[in-house]
């Protein structure tokens, strides 16, 4: 575990060089389904019951993705990702099935779909013990709220900052 920083740094370098790093702008809400409808257990599995309304991050209908599209570069890696909308639908299903904490996880996850891989890994790393000062955690919270409209995750970082201070998990507390 001691070389975890090097590892993460190395991975970040690779991610930056790869075509998997999303730009953060590929997830446009205008191209995805978001009809405000509440989904539930009866709608599950979505793949069998609502495939027609599931879209990729670039707005392609799931039914339209074929081997031919892959072969002719009409679909790339970024198209094969879950959207905030699909996660909200799965959250509805989880909540309806009585699993509130799973729904809360999907709600956080929905906010994180917009964040590029590299930044997401950095944020995770910043939450690990003794990595960040209180200000650094609050600054990420601010970034989450203002740049990504990720209010639940921002509150998660603020809560962590509060408890890391009182329970001595901030940078320099070791």
């Amino acid at each position: 575990m001691s070389d975890i920083n090097d590892l993460v740094a190395n991975i970040l370098k690779q991610v930056n060089n790869s075509d998997t790093a999303s730009t953060g702008s590929t997830n446009s809400s205008s191209t995805s389904v978001s009809d405000g409808k509440q989904y539930g257990v009866k709608d599950y599995p979505l793949y069998e019951k609502h495939r027609d309304i599931i879209r990729t991050p670039s707005g392609k209908p799931l039914n339209d993705i074929t081997l031919d599209d892959i072969q002719n570069n009409r679909v790339d890696r970024k198209d094969l990702r879950i959207t905030a909308e699909a996660l909200k639908m799965q959250g509805d299903v989880a909540g309806d099935a009585g699993r509130k904490t799973l729904q809360m996880n999907f709600d956080r996850a929905a906010e994180l779909t917009k964040i590029p891989d590299d930044r997401l890994l950095e944020m995770y790393n910043a939450l690990r013990p003794y990595r960040s000062s209180k200000d650094e955690l609050l600054s990420i919270a601010n970034e989450l709220r203002t740049k990504y409209d990720a209010n639940i995750c921002a509150a998660w970082f603020e809560e962590a900052a509060k408890y890391y201070e009182s329970r001595k998990k901030l940078k320099g507390d070791k």
Binding site: Y44, P45, T56, L80, I82, T83, L87, M89, Q90, A94
Partner: peptide, 11 residues
Amino acid sequence: KQKVVGDYLQT
């Protein structure tokens, strides 16, 4: 494609 739908994220 299943990762786009997320059905298998359920319990």
